[in-house]
Amino acid sequence: GTEIELESKNGQREHYTATSEDEARKIIEKAVRRGIKRIELRGASEQLIRDMQEIAKQIGLQYRTDGSL
């Protein structure tokens, strides 16, 4: 699965493990709508990382991946 670590603007951290790319995408989209400061992805697919970079650029988000592409 993909591990997703979120940090909201007030510094609250949340951790999710998505079993599918679809689920990961839903978690990320929800977080973005809620207003999130930072997202870290571990074990994400190349496609998901590309999507994440696109989203991050659009809304000026900090993100990090573990680089295991």
Results as ranks from 00 to 15, higher is better:
residue 48 L to D: 00
residue 20 S to P: 02
residue 11 G to C: 13
residue 2 T to C: 13
residue 16 Y to H: 09
residue 42 R to F: 11
residue 59 I to V: 14
residue 2 T to V: 13
residue 11 G to D: 03
residue 22 D to V: 09
residue 32 V to S: 03
residue 32 V to M: 15
residue 26 K to Y: 07
residue 35 G to D: 09
residue 54 E to D: 09
residue 60 G to Y: 06
residue 12 Q to A: 09
residue 69 L to C: 14
residue 42 R to V: 11
residue 50 R to K: 09
residue 12 Q to W: 10
residue 4 I to Q: 01
residue 30 K to N: 12
residue 30 K to L: 12
residue 33 R to L: 12
residue 22 D to H: 06
residue 37 K to A: 10
residue 52 M to R: 00
residue 21 E to I: 10
residue 57 K to T: 09
residue 42 R to N: 06
residue 69 L to N: 07
residue 50 R to W: 07
residue 9 K to M: 13
residue 1 G to T: 14
residue 55 I to A: 02
residue 36 I to V: 12
residue 12 Q to T: 12
residue 2 T to N: 01
residue 11 G to I: 01
residue 7 E to G: 03
residue 65 T to I: 09
residue 36 I to L: 08
residue 59 I to G: 14
residue 7 E to L: 13
residue 53 Q to R: 11
residue 65 T to P: 15
residue 61 L to E: 07
residue 48 L to M: 05
residue 25 R to D: 00
residue 65 T to C: 15
residue 11 G to Y: 00
residue 27 I to Y: 08
residue 17 T to N: 08
residue 69 L to A: 06
residue 44 A to S: 03
residue 24 A to H: 00
residue 23 E to F: 05
residue 55 I to T: 02
residue 52 M to V: 15
residue 11 G to F: 01
residue 17 T to Y: 13
residue 41 L to S: 01
residue 12 Q to Y: 09
residue 3 E to P: 02
residue 7 E to W: 08
residue 38 R to P: 01
residue 42 R to M: 11
residue 28 I to W: 02
residue 20 S to A: 04
residue 45 S to F: 05
residue 55 I to N: 01
residue 46 E to K: 08
residue 31 A to G: 04
residue 51 D to F: 13
residue 19 T to A: 12
residue 22 D to C: 11
residue 69 L to K: 05
residue 8 S to Y: 14
residue 18 A to V: 11
residue 8 S to K: 08
residue 62 Q to W: 04
residue 44 A to Q: 03
residue 13 R to K: 13
residue 36 I to S: 03
residue 48 L to R: 00
residue 20 S to M: 02
residue 60 G to A: 03
residue 9 K to R: 10
residue 26 K to I: 14
residue 45 S to T: 06
residue 30 K to T: 12
residue 13 R to Q: 05
residue 45 S to M: 04
residue 49 I to K: 08
residue 57 K to H: 13
residue 32 V to L: 14
residue 28 I to K: 00
residue 54 E to R: 08
residue 18 A to D: 09
residue 38 R to G: 06
residue 40 E to A: 13
residue 68 S to M: 07
residue 26 K to M: 09
residue 63 Y to D: 15
residue 22 D to R: 07
residue 9 K to A: 13
residue 57 K to Q: 09
residue 2 T to K: 00
